[in-house]
Design a protein around this nucleic acid. Structure first.
Length: 815
RNA sequence: GCGGAGGUGGCGAAAUGGCAGACGCGCUAGACUUAGGAUCUAGUGUCUUACGGCGUAGGGGUUCAAGUCCCCUCUUCCGCACCA
């Protein structure tokens, strides 16, 4: 009978389910393994990227279960977010209904793949049981002083009055979390705790994202305005080279200056600021873009020389880095240099190359940004840059000119979304008391589900007076709910903790459970989350530890970032129209085939080129495995004795036995250490080939074949769990294969008594000679030199040197 | 520009400094077949009739031995990119 994957796969999915094969239970006496995949957004259907991600995870979960680990492995849905609102408009439905329908469908798809999830632990973030705890965490952060409100720009569409990725910017009061309080630890732990469990690439991306730089903060007094401009610099050693001060157009001093100007000048300034701030962030942050400046009539006093330094406003100064103002040193900074040449601002060289002359400020064609020797800087002349930075800041601090400071690129976490489909932020605005947190016993602040999302306009929450109007928890007077909802990264920052105690209704989770299961032993997902999600989740872990809920500060010990699924040279995506629907392929070939293909075609880190031809190849292999058992079933069933290696006479049979155990070693290493599933599968194909071509037929041989088939099925089962269970059962095993221990290699069977020695002459392969194994170097050399072929080749030549690697190779150097 | 990862047959890919191309796809030939897009067998880097030579982006180096280590160049992909 050919392999009927439809019935077989369904049968085993039911069996596992009825048997509760994959249920995880907290048990402190067992070693745990937390296998986690980035949970999907319920966009409608699974795509191949999901299939790849989850097939990798399932192999690891099943493998570790077989190796006596207490495995927790489950899934959920990251189910808040904008697409649900867009879909609600498009399909005239409600985000809630659309989302739950998609979750239903995708759940069916996941089950059809045979992933060994503990479905009891599923977490769905858009349900109040889950998002209640988002609100609770937010309040805990508020209590710790980590939550604040601040005006911040959003992209505002004037015509439709909604937040969109176009048109103008508008300032709104928004909620932030002070993730920057954790910047240093987030950075330090990258080296301390994530190396080597995380890919170097991700560690570097996070390091850059956090962007630490050391320097000093200094002040320029502006006498006319009675104001101190603060600036941050990493090159305090170039302080004598300052020829201008530049402010970001958004700097608060700009408004102060404008108010001091006459009408015409104020207009000009306004015009400039308007022009520059209306540039898109892409335009403004392009290093090649034109630098635009506006010279104000004001000046600041150089803290050391006392000189008057003109103040400019410039588009290349960013308000949200450092202080939003810089000391301009054109001789040492290319950006400042470009700016000065454009606006004829003088250039004073303050660093010269170690073996060069002092530059001529008027003739320099570019800034000198390298380290060198300090010049034109009074008493500091002659210092090397590396020393000067330290010495000059020390001196500056002592004399009150500057203060050491460390700056990060990492920004605080903007939580507010002017959107409906998200976790309501648990605050109210009271007419008397101001901004008031919702008391914890009143959580969750429920998101109304029965709402219509309209194409134009603001969040539908603003149209629900019953929801919006409430009473102040403090004074009982009238209050209005915060209508902003939370960034969905909030949901995804702790869902894995929830997996550990999914049904807790008294707390987000039980510390006992979380402390047992966490941290995650293996996290698997796409590289696109390298910075945001993975940094937010790390921050959350540190915060939860700070408030005493957990005993760990990093959530993910090991991270695997799988490559994209490619078709026709481009990432599979709806917009490119090059997607392949997993359901179609599963219907055609079965889940085991799809899993096998996707794991075999490339190592997990590489991009994977979709090829239906190769899918057929995977399917063909499973057919071979099926027939291997079915065509020999009676014979295999009748021979289930393990024959020890020393009872085997025939060399071929010995070699076959060795192959079986060699396979166990290699497959185990490939899965466990290398996570190279493609090579693990290749080994299993080799074993299958070896079984087919082993054509001895006595009792020993038949017992060996049975041993080989058992190993093959067991080792293949994490990849292709259904077909292997079925064949396992056909062979008469009573226990489910998923509960069976991973096979253990027999050391004695691995030993060879003869080995092929590669013979090289002057480094070129000139032959292979079979020798007894474990010969000493001397004996090996003697053996090889005695070989007639070798003798012939060496005839008349002078042997200069012999290199021998026991059991492997002999290289004879001759002249 | 800075940083990172790559470049191996027709293709996806293998190779603790020790036989380059395991395994698979494709292709060629054959077998079995009414049939073959099933299955099985054999072959498949390249030049050469052969012996053998040449081959891991290119060039140099270290070594008895280099895809692997070192230096330079080219190239592809990814991340960051006015971060003071």
């Amino acid at each position: 009978m050919p392999y009927d994957f439809n019935n077989v796969e369904k049968k085993w999915q039911d069996n596992w389910n009825n048997n509760k094969s994959f249920e995880a239970k907290t048990d402190n006496s067992k070693q745990k393994f937390f296998c986690l995949e980035m949970f999907p957004y319920p966009s409608g259907a699974l795509h191949m990227g999901h299939i790849r991600n989850y097939s990798i995870g399932d192999v690891l979960a099943r493998f570790h279960r077989k190796n006596n680990k207490n495995v927790i492995y489950t899934i959920g849905f990251d189910s808040f977010g904008m697409p649900a609102e867009n879909a609600a408009i498009k399909y005239k439905t409600k985000p809630h209904d659309w989302t739950l329908k998609n979750i239903d469908y995708m759940t069916q798809q996941l089950k059809r793949m045979g992933y060994s999830y503990d479905w009891n632990r599923e977490a769905i973030t858009c349900l109040p049981e889950y998002y209640k705890w988002n609100q609770w965490f937010f309040l805990q952060m508020y209590k710790k002083g980590l939550v604040y409100q601040k005006e911040a720009p959003v992209n505002w569409c004037d015509t439709c009055g909604t937040v969109l990725a176009t048109v103008t910017k508008k300032n709104l009061k928004q909620w932030f979390i002070k993730i920057t309080d954790y910047a240093q630890e987030l950075l330090s732990d990258i080296d301390k705790k994530l190396d080597p469990g995380w890919p170097k690439r991700v560690r570097i991306m996070q390091t850059n994202w956090i962007g630490r730089s050391e320097g000093a903060r200094l002040k320029f007094n502006v006498p006319d305005l009675n104001y101190d401009i603060e600036a941050f610099t990493t090159r305090f050693d170039t302080i004598y080279g300052v020829t201008f001060i530049a402010l970001a157009p958004e700097h608060e001093l700009v408004k102060i200056m404008r108010d001091k100007l006459n009408h015409d000048d104020a207009e000009k300034l306004n015009e400039f600021v308007k022009k520059v701030t209306s540039q898109s962030s892409i335009e403004r942050s392009d290093a090649k873009a034109d630098k635009l400046g506006f010279k104000t009539p004001f000046y600041g006093i150089h803290p050391i020389t006392g000189k008057k330094i003109p103040i400019w406003i410039a588009n290349y100064i960013l308000i949200d880095y450092g202080t939003g103002a810089i000391m301009g040193v054109p001789s040492g900074d290319q950006r400042d240099f470009d700016f000065c040449r454009k606006y004829n601002i003088p250039v004073i060289p303050v660093i010269k190359p170690e073996d060069g002359e002092i530059f001529d400020g008027d003739k320099m064609t570019q800034a000198y940004e390298e380290y060198g020797i300090v010049c034109n800087s009074g008493e500091f002349d002659g210092l090397k840059t590396e020393d000067a930075i330290k010495i000059m800041i020390d001196w500056g601090e002592k004399n009150g000119y500057c203060k050491r400071e460390i700056n990060f690129k990492l920004r605080d976490w903007l939580i507010s979304r002017q959107r409906y489909w998200g976790t309501p932020i648990p605050f109210v605005y009271c007419d008397h008391c101001g901004v008031v947190p919702v008391p914890e016993d009143q959580l969750p602040v429920r998101l109304p589900e029965d709402v219509e999302v309209k194409e134009v306009g603001h969040s539908p929450l603003l149209d629900l007076p019953d929801w919006l109007n409430t009473t102040c928890p403090k004074c009982g007077g009238h209050a209005r709910r915060e209508a902003d909802t939370m960034d969905t990264f909030f949901c995804s920052s702790w869902y894995f903790d929830r997996y550990c105690s999914p049904h807790d209704d008294k707390a987000p989770f039980e510390s006992n459970d979380v402390n047992y299961w966490m941290p995650v032993d293996q996290y698997i997902g796409g590289i696109e989350h390298a910075c945001l999600h993975l940094i937010y989740a790390r921050f959350f872990a540190k915060f939860l530890n700070d408030i005493g809920l957990t005993n760990f500060r990093e959530p993910f010990t090991n991270l695997l970032t799988q490559g994209m699924v490619i078709k026709d040279g481009a990432k599979m995506s709806k917009s490119l129209g090059n997607t392949v629907d997993p359901t179609e392929i599963v219907n055609k070939y079965g889940a085991d085939t799809v899993r096998l293909f996707i794991l075999f075609a490339a190592p997990p880190n590489n991009d994977l080129e979709w090829s239906e031809r190769s899918v057929e190849g995977a399917n063909r292999f499973l057919g071979r495995v099926w027939r291997l058992v079915e065509d020999n079933l009676e014979n295999l069933k009748a021979h289930n004795k393990i024959v020890p290696i020393d009872e085997i006479q025939s060399p071929d049979a010995k070699e076959f036995k060795r192959k079986i155990h060699d396979t166990i070693i290699n497959v185990t290493r490939d899965i466990k250490e290398e996570k190279q599933f493609n090579t693990a599968i290749a080994r299993l194909m080799e074993l299958a080939n070896a079984i087919y071509s082993f054509n001895e037929n006595d009792d020993t041989a038949n017992n060996l074949k049975r041993e080989a088939v058992d190993v093959l099925l067991n080792c293949l089962s994490p990849f292709c769990p259904h077909i292997t269970e079925e064949l396992w059962e056909m062979l008469g095993h009573e226990k489910y294969l998923c509960d069976e221990n991973w096979p253990c290699a027999d050391e004695k069977s691995l030993v060879r008594d003869s080995v092929m020695i590669v013979v090289q002459i002057n480094g070129k392969v000139r032959g292979k000679i079979s020798c007894q194994a474990n010969l000493s170097k001397e004996n090996l050399e003697a053996e090889i030199l005695n070989d007639p072929d070798v003798k012939k080749r060496l005839d008349g030549k002078n042997i200069l040197k012999i290199i021998s690697v026991p059991d492997k190779l002999v290289n004879i150097v001759v002249k």
